[in-house]
């Protein structure tokens, strides 16, 4: 009796151990390569191989004094900021229209709007390229911005829409009942309730724009964005300079994402996917 129970417990423990190891390996699999990327940004061998030979900050110095890279970085900042503005200007009214009005073809419209985050980015890229080519628009950073705006607005729409769906409209009615004008109700009641969803999704859109390739690849003219610059370098070969700039980007995007997760999940909100 005692014996069989201990044996049973041992088997359970063995199962749990195996499960624990598998889960830990999965986390290791997710973080190993990122840590590798970071470690080799400090290694003083131009070839990324083991064993590590010595510590250096040269790659950071090289990256941060590389004028092509800095120009690309600046372009990326411009593109991301402009794209986020488009996302907000278009995305917020779209979310309101979907939440507050019934109109013909609404279901179809909702599906259309999320297509850019459902379909592979390359489809958005080549279809907008075809459109610009037919309209005779020359490719530049402006076309990249429009492409990013198209590809990423859905993120603002889905997040703001989800927040609006949970928002208790009776608060707005109460505000109107006690004499607030519509704009006052909007500014003092509605906006504060959806503010964190707006800021959170704007941060996500910024991060994604900063990392975007499939759309940019087809819509960029002579100017490179940062991912396009990195892409052109890593296609040719490997240099720890990319590890250095990569480490900086990783650190910054993790900070941004923490901020946006905090904001989206504040007010007890959860991010709903419309997919």
């Amino acid at each position: 009796m005692m014996n069989s129970r201990t044996r049973r417990r041992r088997r359970i423990d063995l199962g749990n151990t195996a499960l624990g190891i598998a889960a830990a390996s999965a986390i290791g699999f997710l973080y190993g390569p990122i840590i590798t990327l970071m470690v080799f940004s400090f290694n003083d061998n131009p070839i990324t191989k083991l064993p590590l030979t010595g510590w250096t900050l040269d790659w950071y110095y090289k990256a941060l004094t590389n004028s092509d890279l800095l120009a690309a970085l600046w372009n990326s900042v411009i593109v991301a900021v402009a794209a986020v503005i488009i996302c907000l200007v278009i995305g917020i009214p779209t979310a309101f229209a979907l939440d507050r009005f019934d109109f013909r073809g609404k279901t179809l419209f909702r599906r259309l709007v999320i297509l850019p985050i459902t379909l592979p980015g390359i489809i958005t890229g080549v279809s907008i390229l075809a459109f610009f080519s037919m309209a005779g628009v020359k490719l530049s950073l402006v076309t990249v911005i429009i492409g990013h705006g198209t590809a990423l607005t859905a993120i603002v729409v889905t997040n703001v829409f989800a927040r609006l769906q949970r928002f208790d409209r009776r608060i707005e009615e109460a505000s109107a009942d006690i004499g607030a004008r519509p704009w006052q109700t909007f500014v003092y009641i509605t906006l504060p309730n959806i503010r964190s969803a707006i800021i959170g999704s704007a941060l996500i859109a910024f991060t994604l724009s900063f990392d975007e390739i499939p759309v940019t690849y087809f819509l960029t003219g002579r100017d490179n964005t940062l991912p396009m610059y990195i892409w052109s370098v890593v296609r040719r070969g490997i240099t720890p300079e990319i590890n250095a700039i990569g480490t900086i980007i990783v650190a910054l995007s993790i900070v941004l994402i923490f901020l946006s997760v905090l904001l989206i999940h504040s007010d007890g909100g959860t991010k709903k996917k419309m997919r």
């Binding site: 990122i34 590798t36 990327l37 900063f210 990392d211 990783v250």
Partner: peptide
Amino acid sequence: WVSYLLRAYTWKTILGSEGI
């Protein structure tokens, strides 16, 4: 949320013939 391109690139540095 870590750059997509960099995550692909780091595998190139891991798996290459002179790689990690």
